[in-house]
């Protein structure tokens, strides 16, 4: 078991790919925001890459182990310590019963991941352990970790993986202290509601990530975008504002124009709504969003569907046991 001494800012149980099969009931996929770091953590401790682990945001938790386990911490650098001694990240480490793992504020990046051999064994709900607190589903009682809670662990694999396993060079996400992030974005589905000048503005602007950003949506601050004619000359059912459209499905990664505010819809985002989505950020580069911090600059780079799919294949190749070296 993992005992929660301090929960951190908002630490949640997640599994990958998350909650699949209930999109037609309005459920978001949830799951880890930086699935690259998450999957590597699991591979380091010998788990299947999607096994339930913890996602810590901005300020990590303090946890006590009640049994011996192999663990790995990846993602944002929250200066993890084990009984006060710095713990190496991106590496499998053996902990023993009674030891205390503490994560602090993120020094670079925003989200850190903890994998434990055997995984977190909270009860799955709707096919997943991923936490979606708005609907009270997954995690521990539907919510983020709270002080004093105990997280059950699954049976540790026997024989287990060894300590000292590392991620191969080049196989882990380059999370740094830089404040500028180049983020790929594909045109569509509603790109024909924006005129050429609007697209040029979108791809040519240093967008500022605002503090009103979370696992639901990333709100961006920047210039006003201009619309194509059909945004104004449209059937009345589409609504009064140029950015209004008959309520429609929102893809994961939609760059949603909510009135005049751009919001990237991410892991826990709404599945439908009445605003246009002129662009989509590929799931394969969500790790960049997950590790960006409020005040950082996002600059979008236009890619086509083929390049977006190539990014997905490339990420898939990096999240295999071949990424782990001993």
């Amino acid at each position: 078991m993992l005992k929660v001494i301090k929960p951190g800012l908002e630490t949640s149980v997640q599994d990958w790919p998350g909650r699949i099969g209930f999109a037609n009931q309005g459920f978001p996929v949830s799951g880890p925001f930086d699935s690259w770091s998450f999957r590597l953590a699991n591979l380091l401790v010998g788990n299947p890459p999607g096994t339930a682990g913890l996602e810590a945001q901005f300020l990590g938790p303090t946890l006590a182990f009640t049994d011996d386990r192999l663990i790995a911490v990846t993602g944002a650098d929250m200066r993890p310590t084990l009984d006060g001694v710095p713990l190496p990240m991106w590496e499998s480490v053996a902990v023993t019963a009674g030891q205390v793992l503490a994560l602090g504020p993120a020094r670079s990046g925003a989200r850190a991941y903890l994998a434990v051999a055997g995984g977190i064994a909270t009860p799955p709900m709707l096919g997943s352990r991923a936490t979606f607190h708005k609907a009270g589903v997954g995690g521990l009682g539907g919510h983020a970790l709270s002080e004093g809670a105990g997280l059950p662990l699954g049976p540790a694999p026997r024989p287990g993986a060894a300590p000292g396993r590392r991620v191969a060079p080049g196989a882990r996400p380059p999370i740094g202290q830089g404040k500028r992030h180049e983020v790929e974005a594909v045109r569509g589905p509603n790109d024909d509601w924006i005129d050429d000048a609007g697209h040029a503005t979108f791809y040519g602007t240093d967008w500022v990530l605002t503090g009103r950003s979370d696992r639901t949506g990333y709100r961006l601050q920047g210039p006003v975008l201009s619309f194509a004619g059909r945004a104004r000359d449209k059937p009345v059912e589409h609504g009064a504002q140029p950015a209004n459209i008959i309520d429609q499905g929102y893809p994961l990664g939609a760059v949603n124009l909510a009135g005049d505010t751009l919001i990237i819809l991410v892991q826990d985002g709404p599945s439908m709504g009445g605003f246009i989505n002129p662009w989509t950020v590929p799931y394969a580069v969500f790790w960049k969003l997950a590790q960006a911090r409020p005040g950082d600059i996002l600059r979008f780079r236009e890619v086509g569907v083929e390049e977006a799919q190539a990014l997905a294949r490339d990420l898939g190749r990096k999240c295999t046991p071949a990424a782990i070296v001993t």
Binding site: V186, G188, P189, K234, P235, I246, Q248, G249, P251, L252, G253, A254, T280, V281, P282, Y283, A284, V305, A308, Q309, L311, A312
Partner: peptide, 13 residues
Amino acid sequence: PLGDAGLSVEFGD
């Protein structure tokens, strides 16, 4: 197409 992981089949307006 919806990024790398989606497709919308749109029948009308």
